[in-house]
Design a protein around this nucleic acid. Structure first.
Lengths: 144, 144
DNA sequence: TTGCGTGCAAAGGTTTTGCATGGCA
DNA sequence: TGCCATGCAAAACCTTTGCACGCAA
């Protein structure tokens, strides 16, 4: 009845993995596979339940990228406001690019100040074509 | 082999529902339930397949909104299908905001010139909270 | 008549739930 | 020793696929 949270191996392993991948988003499967390969089996039920808690605490962000059926999670650095980090998704090769760029926070401030809308860049994904794929398309003369 | 698209009752019923709800996003289940209640049964397979087509045609947009496990779709007015438009989606009320703003095209140029990524703003949606909903949240002192 | 469209059933994948057991405090 | 945490299995969902039949053109 006290609602005290216990410290366990599983939780620490999950949180460590999230922290070590703070620059990337990871899926439940990513976590499960990684831990498995490191001789630290954790049931997916546990992963889901712990991520739920971390989500409530704001320790982690959840978002979904188009075409991906499963949810993505990312550790949120308490000191850092993640306004400077955003995502580009290449629609050709599917690569997800993580970009640190001050221009984006300027844009966010502008949208908020002048348009009253408060963007959540952790949830927002820019769709387009990455440099590698656009180069390929040029070389092919526009054919697929 | 001609790839001609046929007109059917089912498609018309789905498209009508989408048009009548152009101010909201709807799920496959919403569509299915509504049609069922209107004595117009359409299998979910058909709904999924038709939405896929509409998506390719750009007649409809697909979203994933937090807290919802299933995908959301929203009719896009053909007259508003303009490359100068950017889209903001409020995650609280679901409203889709069309925005004209030179700052975003500047950002796109910057992303392309300095990062080599060519954003497709027709496909990109900014998620966040609109002014009305953020005001409401403030008035509630942060409670839901 | 042709071939696209439809819908059922089944498969595939992700997430949640029930329940007995394990383990922190 | 209390309770929370864990993990298996099963259930609950969402979405896709296969296939036979229906139906627009």
């Amino acid at each position: 009845m006290n609602n005290i949270e216990y410290k366990t191996k599983q939780k620490q392993a999950i949180l460590n993995f999230l922290k070590n991948n703070r620059d990337n988003h990871v899926t439940v499967n990513d976590i499960s596979v990684y831990l498995e390969n490191n001789n630290c089996h954790v049931g997916i039920t546990t992963i889901y339940r712990y991520l739920d808690k971390l989500l409530e605490q704001g320790t982690v962000r959840k978002y979904t990228v188009d075409n991906s059926t499963s949810a993505c999670f990312q550790y949120v650095d308490p000191s850092k406001t993640c306004h400077e980090h955003f995502h580009l998704k290449c629609e050709v090769c599917g690569k997800l690019i993580h970009l640190h760029c001050s221009h984006i926070s300027e844009l966010c401030s502008h949208i908020f100040n002048d348009h009253g809308f408060k963007p959540d860049m952790m949830r927002t994904v820019f769709y387009g074509i990455c440099s590698v794929c656009s180069q390929k398309q040029e070389n092919n003369g526009g054919n697929l």
